[in-house]
Design a protein around this nucleic acid. Structure first.
Length: 551
RNA sequence: UGGGUUAUGGUGUAACGGUAGCACUACAGAUUUUGAUUCUGUCUGUCUAGGUUCGAAUCCUGGUAACCCAACCA
């Protein structure tokens, strides 16, 4: 018997609804507002909504919640669709709240006719004033008692553009003393003489979120409308509107949004990072956006697995970035092609190796045989990593040092005979002798070494720019710190290596390929690359127990 | 000082009155032509005080803490 995976609370609700016959199938929706790029937090919602429909044989709509024309744009619509597809999900229908503007207007008229909505001429300050506070009840507006006829006429005039922005609003007539602030006669329509990215200039009044979302769910017959915790207080209004409009009863359920260490997740903050130039754009590889992770080299599978592992519950959480990185490495480890690249080079000369000779050595592309193998040029002069040589070796040092032996990956065992330093005291060249019988794959030397290092032949090396990324913030939870979150930006989150030496096979790297630069981490080509210049992003480092040991 | 939501190892998440489990992290060891991977093991937990019960993370009562709600944002 396989172990039964426990259900999260939403799955339990759905199974109950299905078993009780309340629904025969489910419909979910993913409802982004097109006013920014999707981030890793959205991927939790996407995986949940699409995943549920997949699991229970239902369908999922993509619905853009585009009720505020001043913040929204088609650029965002396109990026959102692109990111969802990249994540691996397909929506059943593509809808827009703006598709329902006519219907929503009719709903508002119904409410007015029932005496459940009125036009208020108060300013926003006055409305706020009369709203009261969480501990004090609000007071009725003097416009609250307008007749149905007058409300009908005024609302129509609002639609006709007779008034300026802010002059009037339409409010639901509920209860100004309600303990839930959202039920104190919420505004449901406001005037905005603004161009909408889809409806153009057809409308100058736009429904508020609360008057659009639930009804849109209802129109689409969404069975389970899943959103984040901060919408809990809205549920009462959501249900109130559905009840008084007497429309299909969609139900709202709330789960805790994803928070992750060393980053921020609010669109407002992410927008700030972009507009103030702290990052190069929404898809900067340091951003927690889906496009940022994607550009950095993350795989869709790793993000989906991550969303699966973090679970769904109602309590506030702060997930360790290391769990995401674990999911990433788990995937990349089996799919990434192993190659060699030297990021911080120092020259190694094999004193007893023939001048001008080139040997082509076979090297496996990865631990899994299906990845195949390739041949790599080897010659007398090689680039190796500067950090792989220590003039005075540390305790338990496995790598190169005066007199020490080490294997050159897929090649020979070498012994360090001497080294040179330049005028400023830096090691400039290392002289080694090699052991011809130790050739990789046909080693008859009988020598065992503790360390294996990577290398690139000087004469055959190609060059590339390599971009190394570190966490964007210095602290685990920048939003919870004192003062402005931007004070906690990590000043060293980007390190550019102008000229790294890479093995020649990398010259043919493709955009979608993933590589492991042996011992250095996982890398992929950046979109800034061109034929003359290769640029690699470090997706994530390898786990490194050695540097930890030293501390 | 109102209403709502939530409290399980360092971090997440299970256990639905009957052995507190799983994953990540951390640490230790084995293997390794990547100090990676893989494998083995270890550490750490039911917010608190009472109560009900043969038995409580779970039920009851009282505290405490965190988060959300007073945009013509979503």
């Amino acid at each position: 018997m396989s172990e039964e995976k426990s259900l999260n609370f939403i799955e339990e609700i759905i199974e109950n609804d299905l078993n009780s016959g309340k629904y025969s199938s489910i419909i979910t929706r993913f409802p982004p507002e097109p006013n920014g790029y999707l981030h890793i937090g959205h991927s939790k919602s996407i995986c949940l909504n699409f995943g549920l429909a997949l699991k229970y044989g239902g369908s999922t709509n993509l619905r853009f919640d585009d009720t505020n024309p001043v913040t929204e744009d088609t650029e965002y619509v396109e990026s959102i669709k692109d990111d969802i597809k990249w994540l691996g999900f397909n929506w059943t229908n593509e809808y827009y709240a703006s598709d329902y503007f006519d219907q929503l207007y009719e709903y508002a008229v119904i409410l007015i006719n029932k005496g459940l909505a009125y036009v208020d001429d108060s300013s926003s300050e006055e409305i706020a004033q009369l709203k009261g506070t969480p501990t004090e009840p609000g007071k009725d507006s003097i416009y609250r008692s307008r007749s149905i006829e007058e409300n009908l006429q005024l609302f129509n005039e609002m639609k006709e553009g007779k008034f300026k922005d802010g002059e009037k609003v339409l409010r639901a007539k509920i209860d100004m003393a309600h303990t839930n602030m959202l039920m104190r006669d919420p505004i449901i329509y406001r005037i905005k003489h603004a161009h909408h990215h889809r409806t153009g200039d057809k409308w100058c009044i736009y429904p508020m979120y609360d008057f659009a979302h639930g009804q849109s769910d209802s129109i689409e017959k969404i069975t389970h409308s899943i959103c984040t915790l901060e919408f809990i207080p809205h549920r009462e209004l959501y249900d109130w509107l559905i009840e008084h409009l007497n429309i299909f009863p969609s139900h709202q359920y709330e789960f805790a949004r994803l928070n992750m260490t060393y980053t921020v997740m609010s669109k407002r903050k992410l927008l700030q990072l972009v507009t103030e130039g702290h990052v190069s754009g929404w898809d900067d590889p340091r951003m927690p956006t889906i496009s940022g992770f994607r550009r950095k080299g993350y795989t869709a599978l790793s993000i989906r697995n991550f969303c699966e592992k973090i679970g769904v519950a109602k309590r506030e959480n702060l997930i360790d970035l290391s769990l995401l990185e674990f999911c990433l490495r788990e995937d990349l480890n089996i799919t990434a092609k192993r190659v060699m690249a030297v990021l911080d080079p120092v020259k190694l000369i094999i004193t007893n190796y023939e001048e001008n000779k080139t040997e082509y050595l076979n090297s496996e592309n990865g631990p899994d045989e299906s990845l195949g193998s390739r041949s790599i040029p080897f010659s007398k002069e090689l680039w190796i990593e500067r950090e792989d040589f220590m003039e005075v070796p540390a305790k338990k040092w496995f790598r190169l040092a005066p007199g020490a032996i080490v294997r050159l990956k897929s090649a020979y065992i070498v012994k360090c005979e001497s080294f040179e330093k330049d005028a400023s005291g830096n090691v400039s060249c290392i002289h080694c002798s090699y052991i011809p019988e130790s050739k990789s794959g046909q080693d008859s030397s009988g020598i065992t070494v503790k360390g294996t290092i990577h290398w690139v032949s000087v004469a055959h090396a190609e060059t590339a720019e390599v971009r190394l990324y570190d966490r964007l913030f210095k602290v685990e939870n920048p939003s919870a710190e004192e003062g402005d979150f931007k004070e906690y930006i990590n000043p060293d989150s980007l390190h550019i290596i102008e000229k790294a030496y890479i093995e020649p096979s990398l010259k043919n790297a493709a955009m979608e390929e993933r590589f492991q630069f042996i011992r250095k981490g996982y890398f992929c080509l950046d979109k800034d690359s061109n034929e003359d210049k290769l640029i690699f992003n470090r997706t994530v480092t390898l786990k490194d127990t050695w540097t930890k040991m030293k501390d």
